[in-house]
Design a protein around this nucleic acid. Structure first.
Lengths: 108, 108
DNA sequence: AATAGTATCTTGCAAGACAAGGTACCGTGT
DNA sequence: ACACGGTACCTTGTCTTGCAAGATACTATT
């Protein structure tokens, strides 16, 4: 285990989940937030800064599309770099998960 | 999933791991930090504030013991409240882990 | 005496999750 | 016409917290 917890937890899990969702198809922030809210309780206020960060990091690109219900949606699309990051983060996550399971050990 | 990510990640994993270690026997911060550093890359500067927090929350109690090598060690011992918290946090962790696995889905 | 290891703790910083609020567009009901 | 609720975007301020770096102090070895 080389990386610090920061990478595993702080920069990590949310971004990884969003990348995973996008890997199944382009999507817009509001919908991503809804899914994540249901799954892991993430608030809507969290997603927009996160998406901007990911765009700055070159993990996603965006395009606008009219929706007919409300303002136009800003769709996010995984870049090659994003797909690569996803793979790497999944690997990190699994390593971390294994380490935690080992610490919990027979307490579980 | 009711609780926010805050509980799952921020307040969560490190504290849970420390509680799990203590559930296998009293220990002192320096040794806990060493084990955690090896397992999940946690820095030493993280453990002392964390232990204080946990003591304030009534999850652990402390006692001093001479060591013969260096300053006396401050041992931490799980309280009943701490043991309860551990159980609850493990349950939360497993819920979270499952949710993440579901999001990752067949990407993995 | 000097170094290295053990063990305690503090300080300052940066990242980020979230609540709360703001804007704006659309359709439905009154 | 108007209010409302839903969709969808985004910003601001606060609070937590993980971490690097350093301070302290005791013991044993060189």
């Amino acid at each position: 285990m080389v990386e610090s917890l920061q990478i595993q937890l702080k920069k990590g899990v949310l971004e990884m989940c969003v990348l995973a969702l996008l890997s199944k198809g382009d999507n817009y922030a509001y919908d991503i937030a809804s899914r994540m809210a249901e799954a892991v309780g993430m608030g809507e206020g969290t997603i927009y800064p996160l998406m901007r960060r990911m765009q700055n990091d070159g993990l996603v690109s965006t395009y606008l599309q009219e929706s007919g219900s409300g303002p136009p949606r800003k769709y996010y699309k995984l870049t090659k770099s994003g797909a690569q990051a996803l793979k790497s983060q999944i690997s990190d996550w699994q390593t971390f998960e294994t380490a935690v399971r080992k610490i919990l050990g027979d307490v579980t």
